[in-house]
């Protein structure tokens, strides 16, 4: 067993883990942060997306030990308490979810898109392309794309 210490949503969290423990297992099973989902377990669906040092990664395809000493943000960390982040509010507003299973990953990827497009206009084509790491089996994506564009607008990003 190895002790890992990860700054999760701004708080330093430590736990004893096996080397083979995945980051998503550390978050869900050790820290009880169950907002991060495991959809496919084969690195394809993106439901497990979290931010590692500000960048979206698939937490089912990374070991907890690889995150030792680093910063992780999960869906629980995007807004305080019961407040909704503007991107979460946009998903609610635009019917960007049905069953909701993919939503945490979608929101984390959407925030990655916003971060990559600071100071540049964001368009629908870019949103569709950059959501390619996240699968949704309910919505047909239209509501999600609308939500990302509305969330971007409400976060002060120019939308083309």
């Amino acid at each position: 067993m190895t002790n890992v210490t990860v700054t999760v949503n701004g708080t330093s969290r430590s736990a004893e883990v096996e080397a083979r423990t995945l980051l998503v297992e550390f978050l869900r099973n050790k820290l009880n942060l169950t907002g991060t989902h495991v959809g496919c377990d084969t690195s394809q669906c993106g439901a497990c997306t979290v931010h590692l040092n500000g960048k979206p990664v698939k937490s089912c395809t990374m070991l907890a030990v690889q995150a030792d000493g680093q910063n992780v943000t999960t869906i629980e960390g995007v807004a305080p308490g019961s407040d909704l982040h503007p991107m979460q509010a946009a998903f609610k507003e635009c019917h960007g979810l049905q069953c909701g299973f993919c939503t945490p990953g979608m929101v984390m990827s959407a925030l990655g898109i916003i971060a990559r497009h600071q100071g540049r206009a964001l368009d629908e084509k870019t949103v569709r392309q950059e959501l390619e790491g996240n699968l949704c089996r309910c919505t047909g994506y239209q509501g999600i794309v609308n939500a990302v564009l509305l969330g971007a607008k409400n976060m002060g990003v120019k939308v083309a």
Binding site: S43, P56, K58, T61, S109, I113, G133
Partner: peptide, 9 residues
């Protein structure tokens, strides 16, 4: 290559 999450790792 892959998708944004893959390209970050």
């Amino acid at each position: 290559i892959g998708d944004p999450q893959v390209r970050n790792r």
